[in-house]
Amino acid sequence: MEFLSYLISGISLGSVYAIIALGYTMVYGIAKMLNFAHGDVIMVGGYISFCAISYLGLPGWLALILAMAVCTVLGIVIEGLAYKPLRSAPSLAVLITAIGVSYFLQNTALLIWKAAPKVYPSLIPTTNAQGESNALQLFNGQLSISYISLLTMASCIVIMIALTLFTSKTKMGKAMRACSEDKGAAQLMGINVNATISTTFAIGSALAAIAGVLLCSSYPTLQPTTGSMPGIKAFTAAVFGGIGSIPGAFLGGLLLGIIEAMAKAYISTNLANTIVFAVLIVVLLVKPAGLLGKYVPEKV
């Protein structure tokens, strides 16, 4: 029973990683850049929803939508101001810019919201107004799964399915895949590559906002650096699963969450991150493209 409960907390944590990783992987797939500021967009999403709930008194779902809207705009603005001028620059320049944007966002948050951590009002608090626990009780109460965990897992699955359908069925989604393969050829088809990249950033940032709200609902300490560690973990998850691949990001996120939870439970809390990254290194040694990443041979 203990094992099951660790497993579920791992899946729940992994679902957050997966949602963030989906954003990373989509942006990488289409813009071929690692957007290291992605984690900080999560933090911004967290703060926006925090303000909406605590200061404006809005209900949780409305706060989530507001956070998504703000992050979507933020994503488009970051892309347009910081990355678009570097479209033909070497990838190292873009990478360094992304790190710069990350620090910029963190320090702006520090200026606005100060360094002291805020206590995030969870979307679904652990107990309801009557003092009953907001959790699903299984096996006569031996296993309890909080509603927020259930919501997190469900959101992750819904998002993953929606993205898969979007990229395989819609015209815009297919255009994204075309851009990810060959921008020049995509332009020759009449696809506006710049607009497509902007859209990708918009989607990725909206996902980051969702991840921010879910993350803070489960781990209610919100500070300007809240997004960095989950951001790096999610990046790891995306590489783990095969960067550029949507199912890969999903799988990588879940596995990473489970490994982390298990390592914390059975080995050592302090070593958990070490173990997570050690597993990543081993996977990359054996399968350099990640679990679901693939090399496509080119015909000449």
Partner: peptide, 16 residues
């Protein structure tokens, strides 16, 4: 587009 199907490639041709 090597990773897209033949039909999808043709659909991209008709993007406009």
């Amino acid at each position: 587009f090597l990773q897209m199907t033949v039909q999808e490639n043709l659909e991209m041709g008709a993007y406009t």
